[in-house]
């Protein structure tokens, strides 16, 4: 019995040491994007050109895919500019009055406060927004997929799911520089032939709203 006891304890120590060694090594495949804030590699982008070429026309209807507050921020910026803008985070295809608006802006990235029962159901959000976007497209509205809350909204799989779902259907992608710290959106826009608007920060979004 003593021998068996010692054997089990030896196994425990070995398991601990093995896991230690794994921790000591650098992971070659980081599981997610690192949230570290990096200096924006602005030289790769043609920000001024895009700013000069593209402006978005109101009135705007703004919603969020993932219940993050980006839509509220976008609405605040539009209102500060004196533009007509409505924010409805639960907007559905059925409730959308297509005659009143020229542009539908859907912000992406998911709310992170509260997990489990208090969390956001990203699949339900995507379903709602995809239906909404399709209805708006049929009515001739310009669809803007936005990501304006930086890398903090590009950390987990829910963020990725909302970005993928919305950007695929968007006519224009609107981002802030920090959201593209790793060049993801630039590459995405190039690969998918989407128009990209990149501004320095959320306050600067006003420069592309009309």
């Amino acid at each position: 019995m003593k021998k068996l006891n010692n054997f089990i304890i030896t196994i425990i120590v070995l398991v601990i040491l093995m896991t230690m060694m794994t921790a000591c090594s650098n992971s070659t495949e980081p599981t997610t994007n690192n949230t570290e804030t990096k200096e924006p590699e602005t030289e790769e982008f043609e920000i001024d050109e895009t700013k000069a070429d593209v402006t978005l026309k109101g009135p705007y209807i703004i919603t969020t895919c993932g219940q993050s507050p980006g839509a509220v921020m976008m609405n605040m910026v539009a209102m500060q500019e004196g533009l007509t803008s409505v924010n409805d985070n639960a907007l559905t295809a059925e409730a959308l009055n297509t005659d009143e608006y020229k542009t539908l802006i859907v912000t992406t990235g998911t709310s992170m406060k509260g997990m489990g029962a208090a969390g956001t159901d990203v699949n339900a959000e995507i379903e709602r927004c995809v239906k909404l976007i399709n209805t708006a497209k049929e009515a001739g509205l310009t669809i803007v997929g936005a990501h304006i809350e930086g890398m903090a909204r590009r950390t987990d799989s829910s963020d990725a799911a909302s970005i993928d779902a919305v950007m695929e259907l968007a006519d224009v992608i609107l981002i802030i520089e920090e959201s593209d710290s790793d060049g993801f959106f630039t590459k995405y826009a190039e690969d998918n032939n989407k128009q990209l608007i990149m501004v320095e920060n959320t306050l600067a979004i006003s420069s592309v709203l009309k």
């Binding site: 219940q67 993050s68 507050p69 509220v72 921020m73 709310s111 992170m112 406060k113 509260g114 029962a117 208090a118 969390g119 809350e149 930086g150 903090a152 909204r153």
Partner: peptide
């Protein structure tokens, strides 16, 4: 950043 207060927590 900013987060909405979840209603279910």
């Amino acid at each position: 950043g900013m987060e909405f207060s979840p209603k279910a927590l």
